[in-house]
Amino acid sequence: MRTLSLKAALLSLTALLLTLSCSPMLMLDLNQKGEMDIRLDAETMRSALPGLDSELSYYIIEATHTEGDFLELVSLSTSVHLTELRPGEWTLRVLACNSDDEVLAEGTGTLLVEPGGNSSLTIVLYDVTGSGTLGLSLVWNDDLMAEPRLLLDMTTLDGVPVPVSYNVETGMATGETTGLSAGFYKLAVTLLDGESVVAGTVEIVLIRNETVTSVDLDLSQINKKGTEIKLAATDFTISWDSDDLSVDLYRIYYREHGSFNWVLLGSTDSGADLEYSIGNSMLAYGIYDFAVSSVSGAEESELHSSMDDTAVPATGWYINWESP
């Protein structure tokens, strides 16, 4: 019995020595660096969007180890190989950007790096997540409209309506809408004069996480509705201003309201009063815009019309001419 006990003790001692002799080899393995291959998959992203550069130009890759190590790099390729990495678990975050430095998509993943090994991971990129803020600043010229009115309509790209907060003052609208889910939206801006649309645009807006996306629009260039002047008479007179002493004569033009091409109606020399009388014998009753040009020698100026911003009133005007 004593002999058996001694052998058991010897066996235990041998196992202990064997374990101790292997320990330095195990520590050496843990100190070896590892590598990783990362492939980025952007196939789940939406297709190209109007008004936005949706082509991915580069990728920002952030890698964080559980022990606090941090790496950040920029890649132009969807395939990335990293070396000299500390073994253990790494968490990766990828931001996909376009040429305007807008983050269009992001993806995350976790990878275990083995000592002396080469691990691989595919990170799928999805449209941006989180929430952000939309800031609005719109301006226009109230003097060019009789009844200015603004309409804003924002939806997701799937057509789901999204409320927008804004305040309208004279010639401008401002506001902020917070808590919007990050992603793409369609913002339709319509400026009306009464019931007539005079300006508008549709913008594709990208909301990013914890970021204020500003939309600044100048709506001063409008297709004016104009002020209707009703006349029930056989004739009427239009007038204009000019202080150019080199003018030889003025030409008067007309067009049907809402049409494009001007038609020469007549002319008057510069020595006369700056006005022109129009009767039913020279023009049929109807709805018309009018314009005047000046002629000096062989040179004719641009037309100055009743719908110009310099007309009085500045809203522009047109004649609705009827028989008395």
Rank of each mutant, 00 (worst) to 15 (best):
V164A: 00
P115E: 05
A63N: 02
L76Q: 09
D69W: 13
N118T: 06
D100R: 09
P87D: 15
T91E: 10
D143A: 12
G68M: 10
S131M: 09
E89I: 15
N141G: 06
T64V: 14
L157R: 12
S165Q: 10
E102A: 07
L125H: 10
L112N: 14
D153R: 05
V128L: 12
E147N: 15
M145W: 01
Y126F: 12
D143V: 01
E72F: 00
D143K: 05
C97V: 01
M145D: 00
S165G: 04
E114A: 11
L150Q: 09
E106H: 01
L121A: 05
L152S: 09
H81T: 08
A96E: 13
T133I: 02
F70V: 08
A63M: 10
L152H: 04
T91M: 12
E89L: 15
W140Q: 04
V139N: 07
T83L: 14
L104I: 07
G135F: 13
Y126R: 13
D153P: 04
D127Q: 07
L76M: 10
D143Y: 02
L136C: 13
N98V: 03
L76H: 14
L92Q: 11
S99I: 10
L92C: 06
L104G: 01
E84T: 12
S120F: 05
F70E: 14
H65F: 05
H81K: 14
P161I: 03
L112S: 14
N118R: 14
E67I: 08
C97R: 10
V164Y: 00
H65G: 08
S99P: 00
W90R: 15
L76P: 07
S131E: 13
L144N: 07
E114W: 05
C97G: 02
H81F: 01
L134N: 03
L92N: 06
A96S: 11
T122W: 02
A105Q: 14
V164L: 01
P148W: 06
P161S: 04
V94Q: 00
A105C: 12
G159K: 03
S77Q: 10
P161L: 04
V74R: 15
L73T: 15
L111F: 09
G117H: 10
P163V: 02
S75A: 15
L92M: 11
L76E: 12
G116M: 07
R93Y: 11
W90L: 09
P161H: 09
R149F: 13
D69G: 12
G130W: 09
L144T: 06
P87F: 14
L136R: 04
E84W: 14
D158M: 06
T66F: 00
S79N: 04
S137H: 11
A96F: 07
